[in-house]
């Protein structure tokens, strides 16, 4: 069975950068055999989303004050393309720790 991932992608107003990050996350982790759902949001919406749904990871491209207990990683590596490998490695480690 495919393993499902639910990821929250964050940037300043949840518009441009977060949607690019979201698309990239789907590309990368689909290739690694996951079924990925990525949602875009702004930093202040995080609490709402986290209350409503379970997320495996928050990928943020804008400074985040609180991740409400969800593992969070800076997605700047994905935005710039420099440090993509590191991001994927760190994310996979988090998923493995949570049995995914």
């Amino acid at each position: 069975m495919e393993k499902r991932l639910n990821i929250l992608s964050i940037c300043g107003s949840g518009v441009v950068t977060s949607s690019m990050v979201a698309n990239k996350l789907i590309d990368i982790f689909s290739d690694l055999g996951y079924e990925v759902k990525a949602t875009e949001a702004n930093p202040s919406e995080v609490e709402n989303y986290v209350m409503r749904d379970h997320y495996d990871l928050i990928a943020y491209a804008s400074p985040l004050v609180d991740s409400f207990g969800v593992p969070a990683l800076s997605a700047m590596g994905l935005v710039t393309g420099m440090g993509e490998e590191e991001f994927i490695e760190a994310a996979l480690k988090i998923f493995k720790e949570h049995g995914k």
Partner: peptide, 13 residues
């Protein structure tokens, strides 16, 4: 330098 979207700095305190 790579030009990035201004959203990357929005949330800084």
């Amino acid at each position: 330098y790579l030009s990035v979207n201004d959203a990357t700095g929005y949330g800084e305190s």
